[in-house]
């Protein structure tokens, strides 16, 4: 394993300072479940400094209010998220993903913020957050802050659009509208300890009668260079009746948008097929949740 400096940052300012100083040579660490493995495997040879952000209070915030919604600090480990009564009640789509990342042991360390910044196309944590309209809170040099819709954070496999000296502080998920529901489903050959061959996060809002889609967002995992929001799937849903035909149209749009590769986890053909299956199932699940059944 390569030698590196370890900095336990106590404030956002300190962490941003180290990032600004070292650029590509610095990497943030929360649970370390991705970055330490990458360092051991020699996959991030440029990293000379690891900045541990678990000690920064703001990054450990997990809170909800009806005005701004849910705040998930970038270093909050998965288990806190899926054990939180408010998250369980209002955001079951997030519980879906937080509870299947890695294993129980991994979930004790791994954070959704880390899952986001690691930026793999197969990340389970990302699609339901994008589907729910999550926004990134980003800190930069000179105490600057900016917000960015989560779907705009990704530049390619393992790459984000964060600039030098910037770091993710938290994600904010809007309060769920009335008659809304979300679900994340992934397909893996094993039931745990596995990586998505394909994954689909779906969030929908129904009308008061719960027979028509008001809106919907469908986000795909592991079938594109980045977590892929499929606007066409949402358009296929908005204003349409809740039935198999509408769901089928949205699934077709998702399949058409998917641009997977063939690798050890699946072929192009199989992955596109799975996107259709999972989109239909995730939409059905989201509808069930919206109906409160």
């Amino acid at each position: 394993m390569q030698a590196f400096e370890y900095v336990s940052a106590k404030s956002v300012g300190e962490a941003v300072g180290v990032l600004s100083q070292h650029g590509e040579g610095a990497r943030l660490m929360a649970g370390g479940t991705d970055v330490l493995v990458q360092l051991r495997a020699g996959r991030r040879p440029q990293v000379k400094v690891l900045v541990d952000v678990k000690g920064i209070g703001e990054l450990n915030e997990l809170s909800y209010n009806d005005r701004q919604g849910l705040i998930i600090g970038a270093a909050v480990p998965c288990y806190r998220i899926y054990e939180d009564p408010t998250v369980i009640k209002r955001y079951p789509g997030i519980v879906d993903s937080a509870s299947i990342i890695g294993s129980v042991q991994i979930q004790g360390r791994a954070s959704l913020g880390g899952n986001i910044c690691n930026a793999t196309p197969s990340a389970d944590g990302i699609p339901p957050l994008i589907a729910l309209g999550a926004v990134c809170i980003i800190a930069g040099p000179n105490n600057s802050r900016r917000e960015l819709p989560l779907e705009q954070l990704f530049a390619g496999p393992g790459r984000t659009t964060l600039q030098n000296g910037e770091m993710l502080i938290s994600v904010r998920v809007p309060p769920p509208p009335a008659n809304s529901g979300a679900q994340y489903l992934r397909f893996t050959p094993r039931n745990e300890m596995d990586i998505a061959v394909a994954g689909v996060g779906a969030a929908i809002t129904l009308n008061a009668a719960k027979n028509t889609f008001v809106s919907g967002r469908v986000v795909l995992a592991a079938v594109a260079p980045i977590p892929l929001l499929v606007p066409a799937a949402g358009q296929a849903l908005a204003g349409k009746p809740v039935n198999d035909e509408t769901i089928g149209k949205a699934a077709e749009a998702a399949v058409a948008a998917a641009v997977p590769i063939t690798d050890m986890r699946g072929t192009i053909e199989y992955r596109k097929h799975l996107v259709g299956v999972l989109t239909r199932r995730a939409l059905q699940g989201a509808i069930q949740r919206a109906k409160g059944v």
């Binding site: 300890m193 990586i195 050890m264």
Partner: peptide, 16 residues
């Protein structure tokens, strides 16, 4: 070999 880890060389776990 593209899957030289237990993550992608899929032996069943207790849950399977």
């Amino acid at each position: 070999m593209m899957n030289s880890s237990f993550l992608d060389y899929r032996m069943p776990t207790a849950l399977d």
